[in-house]
Amino acid sequence: MEEDERKEKEKEKQRIWSWGAGTDGQLGTGSLQDHTLPQLLHLPSVASPISSLACGGAHVMALTSGGKVLTWGRGSSGQLGLGEVVSYALNPKPVTSLDDYFITRVSAGWSHSAFVSDSGCLFTCGDGSFGQLGHGDHTSHCSPVRVTCFVDHFIAQIACGMRHSIVLLKGSSTNQVYGFGSGKRGQLGISKDKIKSIGVPEVISELEDKEIVEVAANGDHSAAISFGGHLYMWGRGFKGVADAHSPQRINSSLRFAKAALGWNHALALTGEGEGFMLGGNHLGVLTDPQSLDSAKQLPVNIKEGNLEKVPGLNGVKIVDVAAGAEHSALVTENREIKTWGWGEHGQLGLGDSCDQTSPLTVSLGCELDEAESIRVFCGSGFTYALTMPYNTSLQ
């Protein structure tokens, strides 16, 4: 009874905001409009609070602490997992076909979705035309289908890129990383040769001895973090950097805890709360205008890193980072949200559609309770903020 009462209090306190592109219903506001300022949402009641979100090209997945999933936004490829193809869903709907499973992880690609259960099962749905669903073919599905090639394995994590997927398997002695889907820019990390696409997951052999604990994907990029905090990246090269068809370790003594990938940039967060940027200079990805001239001189090797520290924080630690197609967001230890980059659809939440080359503070229009923490999530042109109690376990 006490546990039920605690969950009810958490649900009552939880708040979710969205802003940016909304023309496919991905903001959850009940309309098909862009919003340049954060909108406080009134989502349908669920049995337990939302613990995490995943934002794709124009759809959103909400994972509850009770293992259930809600989806909304664009559904034209079946990526909402609702059993039918819909142009869009204005309001969150439950993925009922997974009711017999306790889902612990979700990930959203451009137009495909993936779900991992507490028993290590992997399910995918949506666009399968590049093999990104992992079923060995190029068929699309409007309901989640179990990826049978992993039936004898335990899936720990899934990360969906634009048209590819990266899976982390947890083994008894080591963790293995697999890739499937589009691979022409090297984002699968399985071969030095250009691979158009594969539908059957293949192991990334160069990571087999690295003890990988986290994976990430977006656009034509992939990343992994090892137990020791080493960051590996592969796929489409950022500006001035060649494509990497196998994982390349970022040459840094820093110990990384999280990586967030955009289409032309990446963010990396250390365990000490320092944030770094990696990538080109398009639409404010690099914050220093002087770097626009020097970018042509960047070495053409991802191993060099080209890391630039996120400026303007005056020593304040970062607790969360997220990357959209061409914009970035972070949360400071003071629970401030800051955004920068591409702003055409209002995805920076600053009240306009301007691009920004430096992180600026987003106003949510209210104060946060001392017992609340906050996280940020980015889709291709939109942003979400989610509050939760400090003691809530996060995806």
Rank of each mutant, 00 (worst) to 15 (best):
L122K: 09
S119M: 03
A114W: 02
N91S: 15
P92C: 03
V86T: 13
D99W: 06
G126Y: 04
V86R: 09
S87K: 03
C125G: 09
R105V: 13
D99V: 15
L98E: 05
G109N: 11
A108S: 15
G120S: 07
R146E: 12
H138V: 11
R105G: 00
S87M: 01
A108D: 12
N91P: 00
T96H: 10
F130H: 02
S117P: 14
F102G: 05
H141V: 09
L90T: 12
R146I: 05
K93M: 11
L122W: 07
P94T: 02
A108Q: 13
F130D: 00
G126A: 12
V106M: 08
G83W: 01
V95M: 08
L98Y: 07
S119Y: 02
T96A: 12
S113D: 14
S113C: 14
F123N: 01
D100F: 10
V106H: 04
C125A: 14
S143T: 13
S140Q: 05
E84Y: 02
S140A: 10
G128E: 04
L122R: 09
T139F: 04
H141E: 15
S107P: 08
C121S: 08
T104L: 09
W110S: 14
Y101F: 14
D118T: 07
K93V: 06
N91I: 12
V106L: 08
I103Q: 12
S97L: 04
G128K: 01
Q132K: 03
C125N: 13
V86A: 04
C125S: 13
Y101E: 15
V86Q: 05
Y88N: 12
V147W: 00
D127H: 10
G83R: 00
I103F: 11
P144W: 07
D100R: 13
V106A: 05
G128Q: 03
S97K: 04
H112Y: 08
L98K: 03
R105C: 11
V95F: 04
S87F: 00
P144R: 08
V147E: 00
V85C: 01
V106D: 04
C142F: 07
F102V: 10
G120F: 06
Y101C: 13
S113Y: 11
S143Y: 07
I103V: 15
I103Y: 11
G83Y: 00
G83H: 01
S97A: 11
G120W: 07
G109K: 09
S111V: 09
V106Y: 05
G128W: 01
P92L: 01
D100G: 10
S111L: 07
G136Q: 08
T124E: 01
G131K: 02
S107K: 11
L90E: 14
F123A: 01
W110I: 06
V85Q: 00
C142S: 14
V116R: 03
H112C: 10
T124A: 09
S140V: 06
V86E: 07
W110L: 14
S87C: 00
S111G: 08
S129R: 12
H135C: 00
D100I: 10
E84M: 03
S87R: 02
D99Q: 15
H138Y: 09
F115K: 08
S111T: 11
W110R: 13
D99R: 14
V95C: 06
G128I: 03
V95L: 05
S140C: 09
S119W: 00
